[in-house]
Nucleic acid binder design. Structure first.
Length: 504
RNA sequence: GGGUCGUUAACUCAGUUGGUAGAGUAUCUGCCUUUUAAGCAGAGAGUCACUGGUUCGAGCCCAGUACGACCCA
């Protein structure tokens, strides 16, 4: 095979890879297919453990249960005429024993060309070794994929985080915890879907590419559609489309999908991240708080077995009823230590923001200043679950105003572990009020606020047809998975986090 | 954007005051039929991230660059 020979000739290959390529060339010379796809397994390692973990050796050998397994060789101990190795498939790992006297000299010689990392099929039965370990006795062997690159060292594993993220495939092979986290992620998302489906919500898909990026305050990614010759944005939120569906008569809808925000990268932020948004007609933000407690505690139990979960040394209690509900302005006073005469006075508020080292932009409204104080003084201290409600109207352009006080909205954000986990509100369904709020946002955008909302005429037109009163919520799925897997960085819960291209 | 730290063999890591580049694992060779971080004997393996500077001499000191981690904005 010319390609392999070319690979073999490359000087820059390190010795280990070169040796493996040479070995592969020898196999080819003996007419051995390196990548056959004719082996079929009839069981998996998890199944063997489930059925036989309690069975004693005599019973196993008497039964001579015969089966075919396949997986990756992840360790290898050879004694000459007998070899032990561990085989790993998607569900687990099991020891395999291969002996010359069982396989025959020729087959055993071929088997001995196996490297750690090769993917192999094994036919055989079970027995127990002297130490009692459940082990497969090989009667037939077929290599189905030759590995050219050595795996990381077995004892320390792969530690270099950059390599773990760039070559996640290697991380998944050698780091059991990584595999576990992503299996948990899938289980968490499935449980959210089950929960919402049971409550009568319908999953939908709305545009990821939008002409007007709405539904959140964030900088969008821009792209261009060639055939239509038009600018498009990657969505920052699905909100305005999901609410159009409320107008259309789907009274309970949700979407779990990616959002894109053209902002900094940190342990809490990836440019593309996954959000659950759901909208519920004939409900308000207080109904949402109840539903949220129920949903989070159920998902926590599913993922971790308990509604009290450990996170970075704290025990976070997600049990229904354990959550605190506190008004935004009360949280400024009681947790942030900001007196009402300070937070309600524009100049005093501005002075305090500056004192705390935050910039104040010209023309910024009182609500925005209060939000900055909240971010600095309150948010980091909200370790246990807190619903902070009645956000200022200035910073809540899509939320319904409070009936008694038009300066605040029937909106809450959910905080725990010092971070925002969700944002929710009773929806603004008055088209006249909505148009006015958009117009205020446009003024802020013109004044230089890149994150202010765009005017969306079609959305206002939809509201003019009449949207049922409703409440809606967005939950950051990555952060939820971080919480339930005790992960400090968002990159630990995203399979392929965004990194700069490798040098060279 | 700013600060701190890191980058040495495929992997995990040492590297003294600036003076010939080290270990374990992995790999290769030999021995070995119940091991499991198998063992024993031997061998090979390096653009010390990159570029420049200081120096008789730089993995080590200095400057810059790239990538990453953490903190701050």
């Amino acid at each position: 095979m010319p390609m392999l020979e070319a690979l073999q000739a490359k000087d820059e290959l390190n010795a280990v890879i070169k040796t493996r390529v040479e070995k592969a060339c020898q196999l080819l010379d003996d007419d051995i297919h390196l990548y056959p796809n004719d082996f079929r397994r009839d069981t998996e390692i998890e199944t063997l453990w489930a059925r036989f973990s309690e069975t004693d050796g005599e019973t196993l050998e008497a039964a001579e249960y015969d089966f075919a397994l396949a997986g990756r060789v992840v360790s290898y101990r050879s004694f000459g005429k007998v070899t032990f190795f561990h085989l790993q498939d998607r569900g687990g790992k099991i020891q395999v024993y291969a002996a010359r006297d069982d396989l025959g000299t020729e087959a055993y010689q071929l088997f001995k060309k196996t490297d750690i990392g090769d993917i192999v099929g094994v036919r055989g039965s079970l027995f127990r070794t002297k130490t009692g370990e459940l082990t497969v006795k090989t009667r037939g062997f077929r290599r189905v994929s030759k590995s050219m690159r050595p795996l990381p060292e077995k004892y320390h594993g792969l530690k270099d985080v950059e390599t773990r993220y760039r070559q996640r495939y290697v991380d998944l092979i050698v780091t059991p915890r990584t595999k576990e986290i992503f299996m948990m992620r899938t289980a968490i998302v499935r449980e959210l879907r089950d929960f919402l489906d049971e409550k009568g919500f319908m999953e939908v898909e709305t545009p990821m590419m939008q002409a007007i990026p709405g539904g959140a305050m964030a900088k969008p990614f821009e792209t261009h559609h060639n055939a239509l010759d038009m600018k498009l944005y990657m969505r920052i939120a699905p909100e305005l489309y999901l609410k159009r569906l409320l107008v259309g008569g789907f009274e309970r809808v949700y979407e779990i999908n990616r959002n894109f925000r053209n902002e900094g990268i940190s342990t809490q932020h990836n440019p593309e991240f996954t959000m659950l948004e759901f909208y519920w007609a004939y409900a308000n933000f207080e109904d949402l708080m109840d539903l949220t407690e129920e949903m989070f505690s159920r998902v926590a139990v599913k993922a971790t077995g308990s509604s009290v979960v450990p996170y970075q040394g704290e025990q976070i209690d997600l049990s229904v009823g354990a959550w605190t509900r506190l008004a935004f302005h009360d949280s400024l006073e009681k947790i942030g230590g900001v007196a009402p005469e300070v937070y309600s006075d524009y100049e005093k508020c501005k002075a305090l923001v500056k004192e705390k080292g935050e910039k104040v932009v010209e023309g910024e409204k009182l609500g925005k200043l209060q939000a900055k104080l909240f971010d600095i003084l309150v948010e980091p201290r909200l370790i246990q679950p807190h619903f902070i409600y009645h956000y200022p109207t200035d910073i809540s352009p899509l939320s319904r105003r409070n009936e008694d006080n038009p300066e605040i909205t029937d909106r809450f954000e959910l905080f725990m572990t010092g971070r925002e986990m969700a944002n929710a509100f009773s929806e603004l369904n008055d088209p006249v009020d909505q148009r006015g709020r958009f117009e205020d946002q446009v003024k802020e955008k013109e004044a230089g606020d890149e994150e202010a909302h765009f005017m969306d005429e079609d959305y206002v037109r939809a509201l003019e047809y009449g949207m049922p009163p409703a409440a809606g919520q967005g939950v950051g799925i990555d952060r939820l998975v971080m919480l339930l897997t005790d992960s400090a960085s968002i990159r630990e819960v995203i399979l392929f986090p965004l990194l700069r291209p490798e040098a060279g």
